[in-house]
Amino acid sequence: MKSMLIILFSAMLTNNFVLSKFMGICPFLGVSKKLDSAAGMGAAVTFVMVCATLCTYPVYTFLLAPFGLEYLKTVAFILIIALFVQLIEMILKKKIPSLYSSLGVYLPLITTNCAVLGVTILNIDNGYTFGESIVDALGAGLGFTLALLIFSGVRSRVERADIPETFKGVPATLIAASIVSVSFMSFSGMVEGIFG
């Protein structure tokens, strides 16, 4: 239980996917303009990360590893993710239209989100068990959502600030991201300190 908590919180805070591992920067910069779209994107990514891990872990352990095909994992995982995104989109559209209307637009973007492929490959590389992989994926997704939410708040202030002409737009956004990233650095060591 303790190790699970450590994995969950370190994936969320210390090893935050966006701010310390640089995965999923494109949606981080692209979708963080408004608070509600940031929340939608975060929820969609968390959902796909957990579901994709549910699929990729068994595929790797029972299909690729026994036949010595570990090197095919990039190809296999990206296909699973692409299929999965499509499938989730179809299921949501048919069964839960209200959720589809709020998450739907973000789903196609997730296929090429490197955070999803990254978390599935990292789980294998770190040698996590099935349970640990799911918890890690959940933590990574929550961390992504947290970063997006915090950053959308910061950004709404930056947009209105009076900054030099050359820095307006993307450069200012990146520098704001750097400051948010500094604040996340303060979490290092905290998780192990509390649960360890």
Binding site: K21, G169, V170, P171, L174, S181, V182
Partner: peptide, 29 residues
């Protein structure tokens, strides 16, 4: 560290904009 990466990229993009005398991209559209 990660923070420095964001900072340097922001500055490099701003410098390129200045040199090219072009308006910076407003957003990743």
């Amino acid at each position: 560290m990660p923070a420095g990466g964001f900072f340097v990229l922001g500055c490099v993009i701003a410098a390129v904009n200045k040199l090219a005398n072009r308006k910076p991209p407003q957003q990743i559209g």
